[in-house]
Design a binder for these strands. Structure first.
Lengths: 210, 210
DNA sequence: AATTTCAGTGTACAAGTGTAAGCTATTTTA
DNA sequence: TAAAATAGCTTACACTTGTACACTGAAATT
């Protein structure tokens, strides 16, 4: 049971996935990619596509998973850098901007499908982003000893701001990206500062009550 | 020169625009709308479309302008409500959520085309959003006597947060929307508070120097 | 009143789409 | 070793798409 067949199958499956990823660009979204084009780019006959995915939708969801994986790698990378010291916010933004530069098309996929026409796609992307948010939430809760709800609100706002900046970065040149990064860092500081302030106020209210 | 002809032409132009708007939905984006479908919905022969728009792109850009108009109406409405007293943040979020409920498809258009495949569309949407942001920026600068850069950062962050909440609201039921609104209000308070704090700090640094 | 302009029509075509059906060669199973 | 399973192929079909072309009748211009 060496599985020489299953092995080959997995190989061409990857071929299809990579073909699709390669066709994605600023001018080309997944939804205006046709089954035939993907098959051709993979060096396959159109109908062979069905041996691996029942649908373009199924391929698309696979790509979103793939993108989520890349996103989690990004987080790991950021965490490693942070452990070596430095401003958490600055390093996070820097790392994210690097990610955009290297994985623009994957990020575009997430951005586009998040507001796309398929409920399944939207749900899949939101799931990936919520993993991202919850990890940050845990970190904030632990590092800053924040109330759970406040930590969530901060994490959610921060992710929103960073993703939006990432979206803007896609159409920006390196000069503009620099400015964008600076501004994003400032905005994240607003949020962090505001969250701390309001968390303390609640704390004080509580102790006054006792 | 009564223009009975020009009048009729304008009429069917509106017919086309409305037909397109009517076909937009959660499951149907502008980009997967065909010229023929729009023509059919307008009660026109496919080729008659060209008498009014050279392209589906041209129609699309018109729709984005239309959406921008609606957005500015929204701002006016919010301003009126605010003048009658109440929390600025709360009223703004409330008004925006109402907008989403009544103009979901127009908002979807903006969301989708902002990350779409056409540079012209992306630019058009960003232009509309930047009007929105700059108006808020002016308001903040005047009402809170903030530094111009800080006011811009706050306005930009606020708009990002609100749009993102709007995007989530599109897939939410009324119960979830309530929660979403509350959270958004909190997040906007974080940002406002943080912006004030950091603005003051800069102010203090300046007076220490003198 | 004669001429020009033009919004809207119908027909036609080439190109692209998803996918059904059946075949082949090779691996896997019995 | 014989039989079954299956990844990939070719052919075929019914649709949809954008748009070129020629035409018509009514409005606008002269």
């Amino acid at each position: 049971m060496s599985g020489i067949r299953a092995q080959q199958k997995e190989k061409t499956r990857r071929l299809i996935i990579n073909a699709a990823l390669n066709q994605l660009s600023a001018e080309r979204s997944f939804s205006n990619l046709s089954l035939r084009e993907v098959a051709k780019e993979s060096g396959l006959a159109p109908t062979s596509f069905y041996r691996h995915f029942s649908d373009m939708d199924e391929l698309g969801l696979t790509l979103v998973d793939e993108a989520g994986l890349t996103l989690r790698q990004l987080m790991r990378q950021a965490r490693q850098r942070i452990e070596k010291g430095g401003s958490v916010i600055q390093i996070s933004v820097l790392t994210f901007m690097e990610f955009i530069e290297n994985n623009g098309n994957i990020f575009r996929l997430l951005l586009r499908e998040r507001s796309g026409t398929s409920p399944a796609f939207r749900a899949a992307v939101n799931r990936e982003i919520s993993y991202f948010t919850l990890e940050l939430c845990d970190y904030l809760q632990q590092a800053n000893r924040l109330d759970a709800e406040i930590a969530y609100l901060q994490a959610n706002a921060a992710v929103t701001i960073v993703f939006s900046a990432g979206s803007d970065a896609l159409d920006a040149d390196s000069k503009e990206r620099e400015l964008l990064s600076e501004r994003t860092i400032h905005q994240l500081r607003f949020i962090a500062r505001g969250a701390m302030e309001l968390a303390n106020r609640i704390e004080n209210t509580k102790s006054e009550q006792t």
